[in-house]
Each structure stands twice: as C-alpha cells, then as structure tokens.
Design a protein around this nucleic acid. Sequence first.
DNA 1: TCGCAGGTGTTAACCGGTTGACAGATAAAA
DNA 2: TTTTATCTGTCAACCGGTTAACACCTGCGA
Lengths: 328, 328
Amino acid sequence: MKKQAVKLEDVAAVAGVSKTTVSRVLNNRGYLSQATIDKVHKAMQELHYRPNIIARQLYQQRTNLVGLVFPTVDNPFFGQLEACLDHELYKRGYRVLMGNSQNNPDRERAYLRQLLNGQVDGLIVGAHNEGIEQYRNIQLPVVSIERLVSKDIPVVAADNYAGGVLATQQLLDDGCQHIIHTNYPHDLASPNMERRRAYEELMRRHGLPMYTYEVSFDSSTAEKIKIFYRLFDEHPEVDGVFADNDTNASLIMQVARKRGRRVPEDLKVVGFDGANMTRTLLPELTTIQQPIQQMATAAVQLLQDQIDGKKTTNSVQLPVKLIHGTTA
Amino acid sequence: MKKQAVKLEDVAAVAGVSKTTVSRVLNNRGYLSQATIDKVHKAMQELHYRPNIIARQLYQQRTNLVGLVFPTVDNPFFGQLEACLDHELYKRGYRVLMGNSQNNPDRERAYLRQLLNGQVDGLIVGAHNEGIEQYRNIQLPVVSIERLVSKDIPVVAADNYAGGVLATQQLLDDGCQHIIHTNYPHDLASPNMERRRAYEELMRRHGLPMYTYEVSFDSSTAEKIKIFYRLFDEHPEVDGVFADNDTNASLIMQVARKRGRRVPEDLKVVGFDGANMTRTLLPELTTIQQPIQQMATAAVQLLQDQIDGKKTTNSVQLPVKLIHGTTA
DNA sequence: TCGCAGGTGTTAACCGGTTGACAGATAAAA
DNA sequence: TTTTATCTGTCAACCGGTTAACACCTGCGA
C-alpha cells in the first residue's frame, strides 16, 4: 500500500459538505448552488485534489481503455496503423494499452489473460498466432485487422486479392517472365493468402511458372536475407518480384544489387503496404498501398458499435492503390 | 453499468466457503487445506471465473502500468524505442499505456492529467512540448528520454555532443567546405542542441561558415521538403549535410537529386539515429547510431529504482557510433 | 484437566469513488 | 393556506477485490 493521496472525503471535509456533493460538482450532476460549487472548487485547488481514476473505473465497470494486440510497433505498417488507431481512439475518449506480442504466443496469451479481466473495454488485434483458444467465448468487444481470428470476430482488411492482381499485372505488363512471390507460411490463415491466390491465378492464366517463398514475419533480418540469397541462387532467371511487404522488398533489392542485378533494368520489384515511413525512406519503390488510415477508422467504428451493443459483426474490406515508383 | 460478471462471491458460494478463503486460494496466502483448495479451484473452473483486475488495483494502489508519453510511434526511432521499452517493461511485469502526444501540447496535458490520477505506476516521457507545468510537483516516478523536462527528473540520452563531433568530422574528413546542419528550433531545451553545439564548435575551429536550418519535428513531410528546397536555393554551394535524423536525411537526399546533385559525389550526407527500420530501408546512409536498446534498458532501470523508492536521480548518457554507409 | 501451538475459516473494514433514495427548504401556483 | 415544483444536500449501499483481527478446532505436553 502506498501513501495516502488526497481523496474526495478530504475535499468534502475542507469544503464543509458531503462526499456526494463533491462528486456532483466533479461530474456536474444534479442541482448545485454556485456558492457550493465555488466552495468545493476552492477546496480542491487548495488540496491539489486529483480524483482516483481506478475507483471510478471500478464502479463504472468501464476503463475507457482499448487493448491493441499486434506483433510489434517497430515496423512501418504496424507503426503507422497503431498510430492511426491511437488517434482515432483518442478522439472517442479511449486510451490505448499496448500489447506487442512480438509474435510470441505466450506473450499474446499473457496479454489476453490480463486484458480480459476488466482491464479494457475492447480489443483490436492483429497478431499472427493462430489458434489462441482464448479468443473463443470472449465476452469482450473485439475487432481484428488483417487477421482471421474466429468467425465471430469482424475483420478489417484491405482488398488483398485486388492488390495481388495489381502487383502481378504490373510485373506482367513490364514484360517479366519469371516472377517470384514472397508471403507468409501458408498455414497462417491470413487475408495475405489472397495476395498469393491472385498471383497464382494470374501466373497460371499466363502459363508462367510460379514460385512462392515463405518468409515468416518474425524471422530476423539476417534470416530473411539468407532466404533471399537462396532465392537468387535457386532462380537466377528471376526478373520480377512481388514482395508481401515493403521491408522485404527493400531487402530483396539489396540482395539483388549484391548479386549484380540492377533494379529496374534487370529486375522489377513491387512491394506491399505503402506506409508513410517506407514512402519517405524508399520512395522509388513501386508498391501496393493499403489504406491504413481508413482501416483504423473502420476498426474503431466497428469496435465502438460493439461496445454500444449494436450487432454489426460485418467485416470490412477496403480498396488498395498501386503506387508507381521506379522499381517496376 | 454493464452486466454482472462472475465474481469472487459467486465462487465462494458455489465452493461453500467465504470470500476470504477464495481470495487466499487465489493469492496463495495463509493456511489452506488441500481439500479447500480443490473445492475452490473446481468452483472457479465451473463458473469460468476471472478476477477483476481493477478491484485489485484499487486496493493495492498499484496498476502495474507504465505510461509512455512520446510524439508518435510512427517513426523509426520512436517506434523502435517504444518497442524496446515495452519489452523491457514486460519483463518486469509492467504493461504499457500509450500516450502519443503527436506534439500537441493539449494531448500531452490530457494524458498527463489522466495518467497522474493513479492510472499508472510510472511515466517514461520523450515528448517535446516544453513547459508543461504538470511535470512539476509530480508525485509519480518519471524518467525522461532525450528531453529535458524538469531538473528533478532523470534524463537518459545518447552522447549527443560526441555524435555531433563524429558527424561533422566525417564531413570535414570528406573534404566538405560548406556543411549545413538541420536541427530542432533552438528554443526547445533538448539534448539535441548538443549536436548543434558540436557542429558549430568544429566549424568555427576550422574557420568554416555554419548554417543551421531549423525544422520542427511535427512539421508535415511536405513542409519539410519545402524547407530543404529552400536550403539548396539559398546555399547552392552546399557540399555536406549533417541532418538531425535519418528521415530528414532521406528527404534531403531526395531533394538533392531533384536539384541534380549526386550523393555522395556532389553532396555528402550524414544522418542521426540509425534505427533498425532506417538501416533496413536506407542502408546506404551514413549515420550516427543511438544505442536505442541500451537507452530503453537504462530508462526502465531508473524508473524501477524510483518505484522501489531508491533515490537514484542520476541522469545517464550513452555512447553513439558512426555507421559507415556510402553517403559520406 | 489446562495451556498452548498450529491449522482453518469467517467477519467486517477498507481501497476511493458514484448514485438511488430521501429529507428539508424555498418559491410559485391553486 | 395548501399543494406542487424546484432546489440543495445527506445517507448509505455499491463496484469487486484484500486483509487485519479474531474465533474455533485439534492435538500434544505439562
């Protein structure tokens, strides 16, 4: 137990009124004379009174906190997404409890266990780990972004299929014959798979060979680079790459240069995400831009609806856009 | 008021014991027979009981939450820093409450007002806004990162002066005669100013002209680009730039190319920060790397000490490193 | 038989706010 | 004068846990 802070009762004593009256002044509730209001305000000032939020939360059964469960914030896409979510939630009076799982199922579980115990009013999740059974039979409002969690939970996602088509078509239009795709391991039930489906359909339709390299999100940069070296070794004929995110696209271009390929002369590259940070640091990259801001807005709207008890469990899909750089 | 959840009392009723006994089982406290323990566990399982964290927090006057007040998470440096802080805090049993101020003093104030009301056990701040009076007379443990807040609050920072020397010296060694520096507006009392001081001292010592362009952190990308165009217009003779962060360095190089300058042939550029994301997306940039992980570790350690009541209000300064790229 | 230690469990106060129910006062309407 | 509406304010229960204080029981040594 920590030291005693000034509490409502102390204010009441100094102002010469009851706790209720102070609480009413605080919350602007019921009838109050100006004289009483002034008295109470004066007492609060004198004592440097700060109402204890936790006590209020306990009574109101509401914390105005929303948990964000994502892999990490140190990433152009998730960083911008969490920043947007934070901003949207702030506008509605919510604060954000960070739950970076680092793609560690234990951590995700730990966060969930804790957050479900009345710590937050709702959850927005985008972590990868499949089959976390705690998501089932959840009593809490939950919205998922770019992840399939459970069929009761609405998903906000970009139109990944259209994105896959745009990217692949761009490479085909550029005359590429040997296009390689990178994506998550396919056992992850992620909307990302739609990009792969689009890629494979287009390649098949054009009678071209298809190769997908699976790169898990939580691999280290060194591991990813190793995979990309292998990519060039196993497929020296590659003349186009459709990467599943801009960071991987950047790594692939670095490896390509090390292997003596010039981009875009010898190799075209299209990325995915088009986050602010990538646009600033790597503006030459041609990429499929996800509408991050809109995704955040939609997710928060869906969450608010659930918190308000509205039964709108509809998923949302938002359009993507091809950004023309110089790499494809 | 929301619907009633299963509470400790319900468990007690089902198990046929008192609230206290259930609480003891929960917290492993006092003497309990195995039979009682089993009975209680069985009842908890049956009812899917989850203890309400808020109630516990109220009694214990402790939330195991730490507030992070930074400008934004959508930035290579702050993104990585917050990820590291989150990780360090997690290891010690704390969760993170995000407080992105977006460099808006009102938002920073709003966060502070709320966080100080018992919402968090401590605060780690790195937001820019000077003179937020709420930081004075704070009862809460606070640590600041790369910001001077108030003299009672310990600061964790990189050795900015050494960084400024390294960067400027590199450009001088490269033979640059007209080196321009970018930094925050100088009225911000930030350790960043040490970089400027180092730059100016070296330039003066070499009898070279010095120009610092002030770019506020919260300007839009478009505004920053406008400033950098102006930089090249006003100083066509520039042959070296020491940017105060890698993002600005990237923008400057883009503007330089638009103006027909080749990097590094016509213009050398040194950045600052050396965060993961920049290293991945812009590996060719020569930059001064801040020890982000160590800064996070140090900050969390200092905070823990304060929470534990130890009186170690000493600030910490950590070494920086020059990363050789191809831009200088 | 009594005293005492160790084990087991309960009662009730407490954390710091919020609010329904209610009492008393004053003023306006009947 | 009585009734009714409008103010002003208090009491006590409540949110859901935690724990100090205490009571009871059993077994053992004196």
